[in-house]
Design a binder for these strands. Structure first.
Lengths: 343, 343
DNA sequence: TTGAAAGCGCTAACAA
DNA sequence: TTGTTAGCGCTTTCAA
């Protein structure tokens, strides 16, 4: 049984009794065909189930209308961003080429794959790639770094105002009467330095400089779990701001497993407002990043570069917003001040 | 400043002083060129930084060597599978085209996107698409369903022996002395029916038919949290097998939040052995799916179909394996038998 | 071993 | 409004 070959432009033309060019015009909704012809061509195309060949189109247009996206497949927040990026890209008439960073596929692999796909621009989610290398990549195609601060002037950045986010978090806790507020940081992760700085500034701003306490964390749940244990070896704070939701989740569950009441004994604030924070058994007070806005700006910036439009500010900073859920409450007079051994 | 156009085959040919065809041969490592020529062409290509244009190549070869993958961007286990698929595909000389299912992008969208990318075959991770529709898709290109049972004879399937997995789980619990073992199921999720069946069979096999208790769950953490609450409205079991790790995590944390000791009061067994189960603060006893084997088989099957090789068994079933961690322990004589109100 | 030439399926400039 | 004609960059016969 012979497989019916996929219909080509030519087949449609033949059926409709017109030239290939005409069909191309109709298919692309380009001007230059009468309504009657359009109708006839459309009908023929439908009848044949014609679908234009993207590759041939890309080749002749010498454009792919493809935006490459590098994301961490294990990172819940990246999943949220990808959702936003799909929406933003299709709004701008582009498609997304996804390239995942996995345990066995690093960022360089992911970027290389995208380069091969001939995407026109690249959007990197919280990349760990050094700034110099990113700048180098920018020489090949427009690159937008999403959710990470990059000092290098050559790289476009769209990110949340991380420092402001920590001002919100600390302010919230301070207004609840907390004074001993610790910060579990993200180490060298994207955004970590900014959030650390925001925490310090905010603590000083609230006259709590003496209570500053930064605990080494990271971006995974396990990092949070380890940090939670660390935290409680000394004099435990009454509240903690955590680098991100994943890490905060680790902190939350570890403290609870250790017998502490959250938020009774310790209040916790996360960062991202990823789906993780919204789970009913987590229900984390957190600093929300405006995913749709970040995604829209990132796509917009990539497209602007492709269109050669002038760009005023290289870095676009989106304000965060505090989402209060159930992991924060007023400081308890009798909060634990002695260290306890957990786990 | 003019952008230096990407070098083409022709540029390399000119520099090396040979014809385009020769360059093509050398680049593809095809036979038909002397060692000397090869060397000369290679040097020229390197000097120009030549990279073949994938699209043009796809077009003329009328092959893309692209395997489409539909996955859930929020699903940790899918992330694990994607990692395995990248490895397996590159081993087979194929590339992956990722298409994500997100809150605003359903499976149909994801499949449509891949169809447009002209991938040669498709691998769907735990799809919800009805069997009939999958069968229809198979008429267009080879489709491999990964991690879901499909009765329709037209669809290739690679999956874990879900029922056997529940035999392992129940057997483990039974050997620890548990009798009242409940199952929190996955509803209509991929694999749920098989796991439910496996649970029932295993309970009977161990003479525990009288203790069968199936609680409606789902595949997310929130589903698990809700089920945990339900579970305890009646007479709580001493152990539960849960549809998957995500759901089990919700169960675990909800029970703990309610004051129960896990595994002291209730033992919990998950399914998948996704990264979630391996987190230190979760450390879930679970039924592990052999991710690399599943991925390798799925890619192998897709490639076999593309090569037109005969395929003996339409469905490839991989045995699971039990991973005992810290959420299961021996049944306690004094385990709670009265209902408690949680949350 | 090498080169010429004909596509792959589509777009776009130009003529009619 | 329509059709003709070159490409887009590569692969792949078929001759030389």
């Amino acid at each position: 049984m012979s497989v019916p070959r996929r219909p080509r432009l030519e087949d449609v033309a033949a059926l409709a009794g017109v030239s290939r060019a005409l069909v191309s015009i109709v298919i692309r909704d380009a001007p230059g065909a009468s309504a009657a012809t359009r109708e006839r061509v459309r009908r023929a195309a439908d009848q044949l189930g014609y679908r234009p060949d993207t590759r041939a189109r890309m080749l002749s247009r010498s454009r792919t209308r493809l935006l490459g996206v590098v994301f961490g497949v294990q990172h819940a927040f990246h999943g949220d961003l990808v959702d936003g990026l799909y929406a933003a890209a299709s709004g701008a008439g582009y498609d997304l080429a996804l390239s995942a960073v996995t345990p066995r596929r690093d960022e360089d692999d992911a970027v290389a794959g995208l380069l091969q796909d001939r995407c026109e621009a690249m959007i990197l989610l919280g990349p760990r790639t050094p700034a110099a290398q990113l700048a180098q990549l920018t020489a090949r195609l427009p690159v937008v770094v999403l959710a990470r601060h990059v000092r290098d002037r050559a790289v476009d950045v769209v990110r949340t105002d991380d420092a402001a986010g920590l001002h919100l978090a600390v302010g919230h806790l301070a207004s609840l009467g907390h004074r001993r507020i610790a910060h579990i940081d993200g180490g060298r992760a994207a955004g970590a330095a900014e959030r650390r700085r925001g925490y310090r500034e905010a603590m000083r701003h609230h006259g709590l400089a003496a209570h500053e306490q930064i605990v080494g964390g990271g971006l995974t749940e396990d990092d949070g779990a380890a940090a939670a244990a660390d935290l409680l070896h000394g004099q435990p704070p009454t509240a903690v701001t955590v680098f991100n939701d994943r890490c905060a989740t680790g902190v939350l569950h570890t403290l609870r497993a250790g017998g502490l009441d959250i938020p009774g004994d310790i209040s916790i604030v996360g960062f991202d407002d990823s789906r993780l924070a919204q789970l009913s058994h987590v229900d984390l007070t957190t600093v929300a990043q405006d995913v749709d806005r970040l995604a829209t700006l990132a796509v917009g910036r990539a497209v602007a570069r492709l269109d050669g439009k002038p760009v005023d500010r290289r870095e676009l900073v989106v304000p965060p917003r505090l989402v209060v859920r159930t992991t924060t409450t007023e400081a308890q007079p009798g909060a634990p001040t002695t260290s306890r051994t957990l786990l």
